[in-house]
Amino acid sequence: MNTLLKAAALTLLAGSVAAQTETPTLTIYTYDSFVPEWGPGPKIEAAFEETCACDLVFVGAGDGAALLSRIRLEGARSEADIVLGLDTSLTEAAKATGLFAPHGGWDVELDVPGEWTDEVFLPYDWSHLAFIYDKTKLAEPPRSFEELAASDLSIVIQDPRSSTPGLALVFWVKAAYGERAGEIWEGLAPRVLTVTKGWTEAYNMFLAGEADMVLSYTTSPAYHIIAEEDDTKVAAEFREGHYTQVEVAGILQASDQPELAQDFLDFMLTDAFQSIIPTSNWAYPAVKTATPLPEAFNTLIKPDPALLLSAEDAETMRKQAITEWQGALSR
């Protein structure tokens, strides 16, 4: 064997050894707004990398629904180890793909509405849907869907066929009114100024003064108070209760770092992760944080009851609920 070949072989060997001893990479697919420097992503990445001797990479892939379709497309070849950002209206469909692996349980007390029994997904935060209004422009907000329908207010909502809050709204009406949902939607139809593709369009149209109310979250006012010192944006409290969006994460069956992934899920329920959530993801943590939530959160409405369809019910009702919505609003 000549020296050149030997050198090449040695280099290759060294390379493969180096590759093995390189820090492992944990890839997490999440929704877009998790990733930017003002989102939770970078802070969580820094906190986890302190403990794991690994490289954590967040990949933003649209919204919750886009995340799931991305995983379905990639299938077993996916580079992702974890998907973070589905909500309970999608988890049943996600499980049905068979691409997710059960988690290793949890040993902290979860502070999530309802009882958590899911063996595949773990929650990391949650929030309630609500209609946001400007209290300087609207003194007497409606206190229920029926009052809203009877008012002359205009609302902007999101399309359940293209956005997760839009879908959650359809479930909200379904959970509150059951069989009467179609009738409620017919009453609401004249109030709907327009329907948008996603949250961003709707919320920006509301801020531009297009509508009296917009479908968003009870936590939205906290952002305006903390980041902008603006307390004019308020959530209307509805008597029927408010629907809850619980956001979850799960490990992929095909992950090449299953242990590291489980470490991350454990980390997700520690204070280091949870304390980042309220003021960067503008949602409630899934586990009580060591330090109390910022003062602004105390001013938010506390819906009662908190409504939530089970993941199974959500999956079976979805198509029919959307058809009902579409039928009522298309008249």
Binding site: D159, L193, T194, V195, K197, E201, W325, L329, S330
Partner: peptide, 8 residues
């Protein structure tokens, strides 16, 4: 969608 006023 945004300017069309609904699922119509």
């Amino acid at each position: 969608l945004a300017l069309g006023g609904g699922p119509k």
